[in-house]
Design a protein around this nucleic acid. Structure first.
Lengths: 271, 271
DNA sequence: TAGACTGTTTCGTATTATGAAACAACCGTC
DNA sequence: GACGGTTGTTTCATAATACGAAACAGTCTA
C-alpha cells in the first residue's frame, strides 16, 4: 500500500458528483437506480448526489417519469469559456477567408493534454455533406495534422511525455504507432513548416495543418484544412501548403490582446 | 424559520466545487487566495477543492505561476450533450437553407427554465460583421422572439410560473415589462403563427421566430431569423413570415428519431 | 394479489471535510 | 540582506458531514 497507492481524490463526493454528470452527458436521461448501479453507489447516496446537482441547476428531474437528465447549464459554462478566448475572435475571420479561398472545411484547435480540442471551425459550403460544428470534441495529437503541427514545436522532453501518456491506437494503416516514426514525421514538419495528415486518423481524409504561437499564452494552437483524398492529391497539397503558410505568418504577426482586465465584452446577444 | 428556510444543498462541498468551476469559467485564470476569498472559504479548503477538480481533470495549475485555470474538459462535456441531440442534425440543414434564402443569421434554441438556450445557428455570409457562434448562451424568454414563440404554446399556469420566475429588465423602450402586455403579445403570436421581436431586447435588432414541437420530447424548441431593423421593415417581416411558417410546417411534419438506444453514432472526427 | 420494480426518506454511525495555524518559497522594499 | 507581504502547501485535532442499510411509497407486470 506504500507507493502503489493511487493518488486519491481529496474529496470523494467530487468523484460521485462529476461521475453522475459525465454519465448523464452520454445518455439522454437515466434513472436513479441505473446511475447508482453504474457509479457503484447506494441508491440513497446516488439520490443525494442527484439532488445536489439538481439544486445547483445542472440536473433536472422529469416530474412524471422520475428520470434524471442534464439541463443546459453546462453549455453556458462552456460558452463562457469560449467567449473569453479572445484568440477565437482574432482567428475566426482568417478561418472564414481560408474556407472561402479553398472551399474546404477548416478547423482551429488548442492542445489539451494529449489531445487537440476543436475551438472553432468553418465548414465548407460546397460539399453537400453537412457536418455540424463539433467545437469541444477531441482528437489525439499523434493521430492528427494539427497535433503533429503542435508537437513539432515541443522540446524533446515534453514530446516524450505526450507520447507516453497517449493511448496509441491504429485507426488506419497510416497511423503513426511508434515513437521513432513520430520523431521522423515531426522532422518533416519542421522542414516544410506544415503538417500533413495522410489518412492517418481516418481513411479518406487528408489534412494540412500548421501551428501558431501566441506570445504570453502558455497554450499551443493550430489550424488546418481537411478534405477527402479525392480532392486532395499531392499537387493540391502543394498549393494549399502555400496558403496555409501565408495564413500562419499573418497570424504569428498579429498581436493578440490577451487577458483583458475585466473581460467585459459587448454582450450583443440576439434573439 | 419554518417556510422561509431555503432548501439547502444536500452536499455542501458541491457548492464549493461548482462555485470554483463557475468562478474559473469567467476569468482566464485565478490564484488560490483569490478563489478562496471569492467563495468565502479557508485557503486550505479552497486548496483541497481545487486539488480535487485538478484530479478530475477539469482544472489545471500553471506550474510556474501557481495560478489555476480550467482545462477544456468541460467543453467535451458540452460537446457530448450537443452531439446526442438528434434534433440538431435534423434542423441544421433547414437553418442553412433558411440563411441562404434570406441572407440573414438564423438561430435554433431550446427552452431551459426562464431562458432560451442557443443550440445552433448559421450566420449570414453577407454581412461583414463577424459574429462567432454563441451556442450555449442564453436569452430570457420574455425578451426574445424565440421566447415569445415558445411561450405562446404554454398553458396559462406554466406561463405564469415562467413570468414570476423571470427577472424582468427593460433593456429597450419596447421591452415587455408587464404580464398583461405579455399575454396580449402572445395572443398575437397565436393568431399569426410567428413571433416578432421588435427591438424588445436590443435596439436595432428585429427578429421573427416560430416554435416547433417534437413528439415524444418534453422540451420546447424554436428558431428565428434576426436582422438589423434597416434590413427588416414591416414589408420584409411580412415576406419572411411566410418563409418561417413554411419551414415550421416542414419541421413539425418531420419525424425525429429520438433516444436512439445505445446512442452510438458514427464518430467521424476530422483532423 | 403478489411480486418486482421504480424513486424517496429516515437516522445512527463513521467517515469525511473543515479551517486555524505553521510552513515554504517567492517578490519587491527598505 | 533581512524585511514584511505575498504567494501556494501541508498538518492535524475536531466537528460536521456524507454514508448506506433499511423501511417506505408508489407504479407497473404477471
Amino acid at each position: 500500500m506504500e507507493q502503489i497507492e493511487n493518488t486519491k481524490n481529496p474529496i470523494q463526493v467530487a468523484d460521485r458528483l462529476f461521475g453522475a454528470l459525465e454519465y448523464l452527458s452520454v445518455r439522454p436521461s437515466a434513472g436513479l437506480s441505473e446511475i447508482a448501479a453504474h457509479l457503484r453507489l447506494n441508491k440513497s447516496t446516488a439520490h443525494r448526489v442527484l439532488a445536489s446537482l439538481e439544486y445547483l441547476g445542472y440536473v433536472q428531474q422529469d416530474p412524471v417519469e422520475g428520470r434524471y437528465e442534464l439541463t443546459l447549464k453546462v453549455l453556458s459554462l462552456s460558452e463562457q469559456i469560449l467567449q473569453r478566448m479572445d484568440i477565437r475572435d482574432v482567428v475566426h475571420p482568417y478561418l472564414r477567408r481560408l474556407m472561402e479561398q479553398t472551399g474546404e472545411t477548416v478547423h482551429f484547435v488548442r492542445q489539451d493534454g494529449v489531445d487537440a480540442v476543436y475551438l472553432d471551425n468553418v465548414e465548407t459550403t460546397r460539399s453537400s455533406v453537412r457536418m455540424i460544428s463539433r467545437v469541444g470534441s477531441r482528437i489525439p495529437l499523434y493521430r492528427s495534422g494539427v497535433g503533429k503541427a503542435m508537437m513539432a514545436d515541443m522540446p524533446e522532453e515534453e514530446l516524450r511525455e505526450v507520447w507516453n501518456a497517449s493511448a496509441v491506437v491504429r485507426t488506419t494503416p497510416n497511423t503513426i504507432t511508434t515513437y521513432p516514426a513520430l520523431v521522423k514525421a515531426l522532422r518533416t514538419v519542421r522542414e516544410t513548416g506544415y503538417a500533413l495528415d495522410n489518412e492517418e486518423n481516418e481513411i479518406g481524409i487528408r489534412c494540412i495543418a500548421s501551428a501558431i504561437r501566441i506570445p504570453g499564452d502558455g497554450h499551443r494552437y493550430a489550424f488546418s484544412i481537411s478534405a477527402p483524398v479525392t480532392r486532395m492529391d499531392d499537387d493540391r497539397v502543394q498549393q494549399l501548403s502555400h496558403i496555409i503558410l501565408e495564413v500562419k505568418e499573418n497570424l504569428d504577426a498579429t498581436p493578440i490582446r490577451h487577458l483583458s482586465p475585466a473581460s467585459t465584452r459587448s454582450a450583443g446577444n440576439q434573439t
